[in-house]
Design a protein around this nucleic acid. Structure first.
Lengths: 221, 221
DNA sequence: AGGTTAACGGCACTGCGTGCCATCTCACAA
DNA sequence: TTGTGAGATGGCACGCAGTGCCGTTAACCT
């Protein structure tokens, strides 16, 4: 074979497969494109395709694992005294960069995902994972707040929904480079809609302060 | 054949297929169960299975179309002057009955859906449809409110998330009959977390009143 | 009784996803 | 330089999902 164990070779094959899949799906349709077509267009065997992607649907939007990792990193490295709404906003905004850079690719993927039912469902499953990650991290940090699990679920869903809505609006408005800043600004308006610190009693505040102090102590040890 | 065009016969076959699928999935596993097994256990041919369900995953939880129809009906029949938060709550609560009645079935489905990845993704796609329906209905009713689309997206996601969180909590707490009332009560707490009427200026209020008057006039004609 | 309609079952076909194995290339060591 | 092990590949074959097609059968209608 022409490639050994080179990591650059793997990334190159992966990119070729993604572009071939997106082009073929856009050109002749999703159902009319077989995995053999994608592999042949990328110059590899059919068996190799399934070594890079778990299924035909995964050839589009292969960056979701990176987005999930970034969110988890923001939560893991956040200072214990930083307000939750700030952490949540920062975590969600790290995902924007995955879309706002390759504008052409983002537009093609968006059109594909929202035309093909199989890709729509796949995207929904991915959004579900984002929501679950947010909810889990928030739930752990709202353990001693009344209805913490409910607030975590609502906040996670709200943040993910606002993120997708801002992205959708940006794409519908032409996906310009200067629109990217306004996209993030628009998304940040969600911070006023989150049920995080609004109706807390005095004892809740003291509990949260004590918890923050414990976290701070644990972190500095 | 033993069944003609009888509607009762169709519903009976459908129930047999669902119970056979759930039992087989629970017993020998999802991947280890073929559609042939389900059809044979229900006493019908393999081809007939695909006349009742679009795929193997749809044999579990076949009531989602009914839930979507109920939500759409609540929105369609709501009085134009009813507050949006009230309509949203009522719409979501109509879906609870789909789960709170058959407790045993709900428990089995829950365990299955959250164990099998394919069924999890299918459920996520269904939740996505619920969220889209809520968001669409809300977006049309928040057209003349600042950031109406964002509020609609956040509210739809929050309501669906709270619904699922309440249902999950109820199932985790044993899924008792008396717990059903508390499940709905718990869900209703989401009404205080929705960005619907909170920060509205005077001109927004007058706009909404004018819109309600227009809707009322259109409805009475 | 004869015709119509709708559901069913069987058959064959395409394509996805996977296990298995032989082959090739690169890296590293003797 | 040559051998060796590990990673990557491609081909082959298999099971199964989903679909189109068609003959058959049972219920309904006139």
């Amino acid at each position: 074979m022409r490639r050994g164990r080179s990591a650059e070779g793997r990334a190159e094959v992966r990119r070729d497969l993604v572009t071939a899949a997106v082009d073929l799906f856009t050109d002749k349709g999703y159902d009319e494109t077989t995995v053999d077509d994608i592999a042949a267009a990328a110059g590899v065997g059919r068996r190799t395709f399934f070594r890079y992607f778990a299924g035909k649907e995964d050839a589009v939007s292969p960056d979701h694992d990176l987005g999930l990792a970034r969110i988890a990193a923001v939560f893991a490295e956040a200072h214990p005294t930083e307000p939750l709404s700030s952490v949540v906003l920062r975590a969600a905004e790290t995902v924007f960069d995955l879309y706002l850079t390759d504008v052409q690719t983002a537009r093609k993927r968006f059109a594909l995902v929202h035309r093909v039912p199989a890709l729509r469902d796949r995207e929904a499953a991915m959004v579900h994972r984002y929501r679950r990650l947010f909810t889990r991290e928030l739930s752990a940090r709202l353990a001693d707040v009344p209805d913490g699990d409910l607030r975590a679920a609502v906040t996670g869903a709200a943040v993910v929904a606002a993120h997708n809505q801002a992205l959708r609006r940006w794409l519908a408005d032409g996906a310009t480079a200067e629109g990217a800043r306004e996209c993030v600004t628009h998304f940040r308006k969600v911070s006023g809609m989150l049920p995080l610190d609004a109706p807390l009693g005095l004892e809740d505040v003291t509990r949260r302060l004590e918890r923050a102090a414990r976290n701070l102590e644990r972190l500095s040890s």
